[in-house]
Amino acid sequence: MARKRPEPVQVVKQRRDAALNALVHGVPYIQFLGIDFERRGDELTATLPFDNKLIGNPILPAIHGGVTAGFLETTAVIGLAWSVLWDDIETGRVDSEELAVGYLPRLPKTIDFTVDYLRSGLPRDAYARARVNRSGRRYASVHVEAWQDQRAVLFAQATGHFLMPRRDDGADG
């Protein structure tokens, strides 16, 4: 059986990066906090570079709990949207040309989000990764971990439930 020749690496990378860009750079709040995403294959790491406007306790000083929550929620939503989009791109269900010209996929909606504050957020850069524990047609459950200097020392973690955007390709709507 003849195997399809793999596409050139830069073509694959360009398509995946364009898709991630379309997801992340269209949301004003993500830009306001200064969150960005680094991609290794399908794995995403969210980064939150420290800025004075993120401070919630000027005496310590520490990052605002709401910033931590917003950072984790953004990581969860983008991580979840990305996992769905990844399959759509790889199977050719979504046209990557359309993504490149700014077509923004519908994002999942947060139903609830619970943040566990493990230690205070230091005035430094923060990182987070999401793990999609369950992703159904309508609902999804996502866990997120955030750390600063040491990967194993989390400063916050969260679990959230999300309502998936309706897909037009399904037989049952």
Partner: peptide
């Protein structure tokens, strides 16, 4: 407009609501 989470509808991001709730609860 800076804290919008859905550019198509203009709805505020949950993160900004979290910041408000967290501060107010504290």
């Amino acid at each position: 407009l800076r804290i919008v989470g859905d550019p198509e509808t203009g709805v505020v991001h949950g993160g900004a609501v979290s910041a408000l709730m967290d501060t107010c609860c504290g």
